[in-house]
Amino acid sequence: MGHAQPLIERNGVRLRDFRPEDANLVISASTDPLIPLITTVPTTPDAAGAQAYIARQRTRQPSGVGYAFAIARPPDDVAVGYIGLTFREDGRASVGYWIGPEHRGHGFAASALSTLAEWAIADLSIPRLELYVERWNEASIRTAEKAGFQREGLMRSWQLVGETRRDMWMYSRIGDG
């Protein structure tokens, strides 16, 4: 879409490029039982894999695929998670996010999701944002709803998680235009 990767700070979070020093967060995420199954986070906790993941995130915007941000705490700029936007057909975009295991329960995901959604709708003029959540994932359901996403329906056998196709709730946030 031709937009530069911005630095976005609001709602108590900073969305910024991933940096080499964020490797510890990626290593921590690789130990989570779910994150490596549904993302490109490496399945083994090693520095080389973490740096390769960071390098891939930094190619998303220049390649036109979307945006990948580290979610950071503004006071110390420590990365606590990931949030990304992937462009789809007809001007839509999908959102994905995760928070490192040691940083959960502080509201970072909902703040980052609200921030990304506000920016994507206002600055990129994306008319429809979508995200998908497994039925059991109450924390992610609360995050989506707190960030203004509305549940639209159950997508049966929607996504492969590991080796199993899973049902997902579809959520959307629609721009005002």
Rank of each mutant, 00 (worst) to 15 (best):
M1K: 10
G2K: 12
A4M: 11
A4Y: 13
L7S: 03
L7Y: 09
R10T: 11
R10G: 06
N11K: 04
L15D: 00
R16D: 09
F18C: 12
R19I: 12
D22Y: 01
A23Q: 09
N24P: 04
N24E: 07
L25E: 01
V26A: 00
V26F: 01
I27K: 11
S28E: 15
T31V: 03
I35C: 00
P36D: 09
V41H: 05
V41D: 01
T43H: 13
P45M: 06
P45A: 15
A47W: 01
Q51L: 13
Y53W: 08
Y53R: 01
R56S: 14
Q57G: 10
T59E: 15
R60T: 06
Y67V: 01
F69T: 01
I71L: 04
I71S: 04
A72N: 12
P74K: 02
P75D: 10
D77M: 13
V80H: 07
I83H: 08
G84I: 04
F87S: 08
R88E: 14
R88N: 13
D90A: 10
R92A: 14
I99V: 12
I99D: 02
P101I: 00
E102T: 07
E102S: 10
G107V: 05
S111T: 01
S111E: 14
A112F: 02
L113F: 00
L113Q: 01
A117C: 11
I121H: 07
S125A: 13
P127S: 10
R128H: 15
E130K: 12
Y132N: 11
E134W: 08
R135A: 13
N137I: 04
A139P: 13
R142G: 08
Q150L: 14
Q150N: 14
R151W: 07
L154H: 04
R156T: 03
W158M: 03
G162L: 11
D167L: 10
D167P: 13
Y171F: 15
I174A: 11
D176K: 06
